[in-house]
Design a protein around this nucleic acid. Structure first.
Lengths: 143, 143
DNA sequence: TATTACTTTATAATCGTTACAATTAGTTTA
DNA sequence: TAAACTAATTGTAACGATTATAAAGTAATA
């Protein structure tokens, strides 16, 4: 379960020559254990009990670091804050238009979209992103 | 050509009870004629010759308005500025990782993705977005 | 023409994020 | 284990995109 994911992640970090500070450990743990896709601020608030002196900058610094090492993906949605997602397997996100909830959605990679785009545009395609928007079950019953 | 698109758009606006001010007309014209997907600031700069006193707020206000009427779509990419795209037909965007160029890409709607997401997650799906990233031909030759 | 509502303008404010310099704390070496 | 080295954290200032606000201007309407 998540214990194992955490130690795997820590191993990855050590291998990349990164020190394991208490703050880092806590941010990582929170990212892995929370099944949601928290914003930097949510992580900050969640940990301020344990680390009353932690700076927001630390959260951002480490999230950037995790991203560079490949542990985490940043989900960017326009003006709103970025959300951060622990990379496990490839998946897409389904997002509720009303409450903002994000649900993981597995779908076989759209390789043919990439190859078609490559041949049509002449780009050397590296990746794609897709999000699906709608209203979640909770919000459907409430409205 | 674009003359016709402009008058169509103006008709849509009038029908929605919106006054056609010179600034509005110019912003609309720029959006339709420029084949790119400009940011609010690019529009602002492009028009400051004609309208030395125009405020950025005017650009933002009108872009929001155009969006509400359905003339324009906002493309949001994380921290960077939003880009604005005149709605003509459904299409996706291919984006260069190096220079940021955006190219339109037509692909048959991924209806099956939406319907699968709907059945798997219980969401009532309304739409999706997809972007494809890579390196454009120009940047490929330069690097 | 007077009234009304809508627009624009200029500027201040907001919010997420990053830069910076000073301090603190892991890690390594002796 | 202690000194030395380097990376990480902290607090705060700064930044940039966007929005809010209030005052002034402009079009439409009676």
């Amino acid at each position: 379960m998540s214990e194992q994911k955490i130690s795997e992640a820590i191993h990855t970090l050590k291998h990349a020559g990164v020190r394991i500070t208490p703050q880092r450990h806590a941010i990582l743990e929170h990212l892995i254990q929370s099944m949601s896709h928290p914003t930097a601020d949510e992580i900050y608030k969640a940990l301020e009990g344990k680390f009353p002196n932690m700076s927001v900058a630390t959260v951002y610094n480490n999230l950037r670091m995790f991203k560079e090492v490949g542990l985490v993906k940043e989900l960017t949605y326009g003006d709103a804050s970025s959300r951060f997602d622990c990379v496990t397997t490839e998946h897409y996100h389904v997002i509720c238009d009303l409450c903002g909830k994000i649900v993981d959605f597995h779908y076989p990679g759209l390789d043919e979209v990439e190859s078609l785009a490559e041949s049509v545009t002449g780009f050397k395609i590296a990746r794609h992103r897709m999000e699906i928007y709608g209203v979640c079950p909770d919000c459907q019953t409430k409205h």
